[in-house]
Simulated scan of single mutants.
Amino acid sequence: MRIPSTRTVPTRSRTAVVDSVWSDAKEFLTQFAQESRGATDTDRRLREVRSAIEATGTYRHTTEELTFGARLAWRNAERCIGRLYWNSMTVRDLRHLHTADDIAEQCVEHLRTATNGGRVRPLITVFAPDRPGRPTARLLNEQLVRYADDPRSRQRTHLAQGLGWTRGDKDFDVLPLLTRTGRDDTPRFHELPSDAVLQVPLTHPQYPAFASLGLRWYAVPAICDMALRVGGVTYPTAPFNGWYMGTEIGARNLADTQRYNLLPTVAQLLGLDTSSDRTLWKDRALVELNLAVLHSYQQAGVTITDHHTESARFLTHIEREEQHGRTVAADWSWIVPPISASATPVFHRYYDPPNPHPHTAFVHHASAADTH
């Protein structure tokens, strides 16, 4: 018989945790006080938080702090070109919810609210942080909406089918939400209602035959495999979205060879010479595929932006931040669009390097990506 260990966690380890949380909390709350009109009596608030962290190892944000923190995490997202809109994100504070059923239900509501009839709203829904004895259910999906036939979704599709999901055999079948409450719990699936997922059929303004390909994509790119970290507190389940830039769909999701790999199909439809790479058939097919995406979303009345417009707006964002005395960290390889790179202004400059340890950020965490 194995005897349970009675060894306690060394005091130094607990002290290190408390010091780490307090350090991040102090930096965040100081920044909140500097930038937010809602901050009052910062010294008293810091004393309250310090006392809570020493007693429990964590603390609770006010709604105003959480709202600022979620928006700040977007502002700090060095791989996002759409940060000009960071302060417009709507924050749904649902920290009182932590069960799988409640989270699935409110993720559906997130999609409906964010879709907004096609006028997509930047939105984040923040569920409860973990507490001792009460873990918050995780979403195992990469995004709230993904397709079962997308090669990137293969593992999650198999997981859902193994749990009893009976779909996934048709093109563009929408995956269910996958949740798990603890690492040892069996995952569960939750079907997304069709009225919560707005999809756009893809057509081309000059090639009517393009519609025969039967392509589509969804309106809201709601990321859910990242945790929200705000001033030392981590919210493991916090799906968030902006709106699509056309190249995310046309140049990556539909064109990447490890995804839908549609460039050969589009080239054949357009009658392009594919005998040699030097005919630039891939480039021509890529442009037409991206044009189809932008055209289709515009025709459907669904918010989308193009890479030229968004590149110019990103430089506007940098100018605004510099006017406030703030630098903008950016990952060049993500900011520069995947097509026509040198034709956009973001290509022709360098950026401040990312902060390796920001106190407030969206971060990948293993439990969200682990679908085994």
Results as ranks from 00 to 15, higher is better:
residue 198 L to W: 00
residue 282 K to A: 12
residue 254 L to V: 10
residue 254 L to A: 02
residue 220 V to N: 05
residue 169 D to A: 08
residue 251 A to H: 05
residue 251 A to W: 06
residue 271 G to W: 12
residue 253 N to I: 04
residue 182 G to I: 01
residue 237 T to G: 05
residue 280 L to Q: 11
residue 266 V to S: 09
residue 291 L to W: 03
residue 286 L to Y: 00
residue 240 F to E: 07
residue 202 L to N: 05
residue 173 D to R: 03
residue 212 S to T: 14
residue 278 R to I: 03
residue 174 V to T: 12
residue 200 V to C: 09
residue 177 L to S: 04
residue 172 F to A: 11
residue 256 D to C: 06
residue 216 R to Q: 13
residue 289 L to F: 09
residue 280 L to K: 05
residue 276 S to M: 10
residue 284 R to L: 00
residue 240 F to Q: 10
residue 230 V to M: 12
residue 265 T to E: 07
residue 195 D to C: 02
residue 260 Y to E: 13
residue 301 G to E: 11
residue 173 D to Q: 02
residue 255 A to G: 12
residue 182 G to Y: 01
residue 250 G to H: 07
residue 268 Q to F: 02
residue 279 T to H: 04
residue 255 A to M: 14
residue 216 R to F: 01
residue 250 G to T: 13
residue 172 F to C: 06
residue 199 Q to R: 15
residue 233 V to M: 00
residue 210 F to Q: 09
residue 281 W to Y: 07
residue 216 R to A: 04
residue 245 M to W: 02
residue 225 D to N: 15
residue 227 A to G: 08
residue 216 R to E: 11
residue 178 L to M: 07
residue 300 A to I: 12
residue 281 W to E: 06
residue 278 R to P: 00
residue 286 L to N: 00
residue 234 T to Q: 10
residue 290 N to M: 06
residue 189 F to S: 07
residue 212 S to I: 01
residue 242 G to D: 06
residue 260 Y to W: 15
residue 217 W to Y: 09
residue 193 P to L: 06
residue 177 L to K: 02
residue 205 P to A: 10
residue 299 Q to E: 15
residue 232 G to V: 14
residue 188 R to H: 02
residue 283 D to E: 11
residue 224 C to V: 00
residue 289 L to M: 14
residue 253 N to W: 03
residue 222 A to M: 05
residue 230 V to C: 08
residue 248 E to F: 05
